[in-house]
Amino acid sequence: MSAHPTGLRLKVCGMREAANIAALATLEPDFLGFIFYPKSSRFAGAHLTPESLAHLPASIRKVGVFVDAPVADILARTTELGLNMVQLHGAETPAECQALKAVGLTVIKAIAVGEQLDQTALLPYIGHVDYFLFDTAGSQPGGNGTAFNWALLEQYNLPVPYFLAGGLELAQADALRNLRLPGLFALDLNSKFELAPGLKDVAKLRQMFTTIRSAFPAGTISSQTKSE
């Protein structure tokens, strides 16, 4: 496997203000992620309304990020806000992932990566998730703001494409644009592109998008994602 032939996708995660979301949309990211974990400093909570997302282009996939939330609660939130996808950062089981897929949601299962990546632990999720997201293990379920050793992914051999997360920043742009890791589908950008928690630096993200897209031509959303 290699980087997706129609381009490395870009996801920005952790917004909650309508004006900031609208400004980000002008960059045409492939995915925008909204965090529904109350302990996160980027918790969307009541800040996010259906109106704040209603005018996003259909090409931008809207992702709800959850940590060990009941399936019923996830479905209620995704229905209310018209989200296309869910990203699960807790101990969600393959059965819970399948329950969300069964109603038409695209499912991303986040995997915390430390000094090693045990691919055998991922096998039960194959067929029940659309993507993995590899993030750096830390004190929080996600958003710890540090990178792990990307070389751990050089031997990735599972049929599930993945998002790369974990402290990605503009200083790494050249290294990221040269990545040719098997299975790599998208980059997940968050804490290193902020003016404050939950408020993204659009100018800085524009630089990152330009650099990455010069190496990976932009393409359409993968057929593996669900239509609205």
Rank of each mutant, 00 (worst) to 15 (best):
L10W: 03
Q224I: 13
I126H: 11
D73R: 14
I221D: 09
K101Y: 05
N190G: 03
G104S: 10
F134C: 06
Y37D: 04
G7T: 08
A22E: 07
R206D: 13
A203F: 07
A99C: 10
A69T: 14
S41C: 03
K204Q: 15
L53M: 08
R9A: 12
D68A: 15
P38G: 12
D201E: 11
L24F: 05
V63I: 11
A3D: 06
P57W: 10
N149L: 08
S214Q: 13
S214I: 01
L184K: 00
L187H: 03
S223K: 10
F148E: 10
P29Y: 03
I60R: 02
G167Q: 07
D118K: 13
S2R: 12
L189H: 07
F185D: 12
G64E: 09
L8F: 03
F163W: 10
L187M: 11
T136W: 01
G114P: 02
V202G: 00
Q224G: 04
L81A: 13
I111E: 14
I35L: 09
N149Q: 12
V12P: 01
Q172T: 04
P124W: 01
F163C: 01
T78Q: 05
T210A: 14
A137E: 14
G198S: 04
E51T: 12
V202I: 15
F209Y: 10
T220L: 10
A196K: 15
T78R: 02
A203N: 03
P70Q: 09
R77E: 13
G145D: 05
M208T: 10
F163N: 00
P50M: 02
L8K: 00
M1E: 08
I108D: 03
S191P: 03
L168A: 01
G14K: 00
K109W: 11
T6C: 09
A215K: 07
A218T: 00
M208P: 12
A25E: 02
A58G: 12
P124Y: 00
L75P: 04
Q172I: 07
F163V: 02
E228C: 13
V67K: 09
L24E: 04
P182H: 07
K109H: 09
H4Q: 13
F34R: 00
A218P: 06
P29E: 03
Y131E: 02
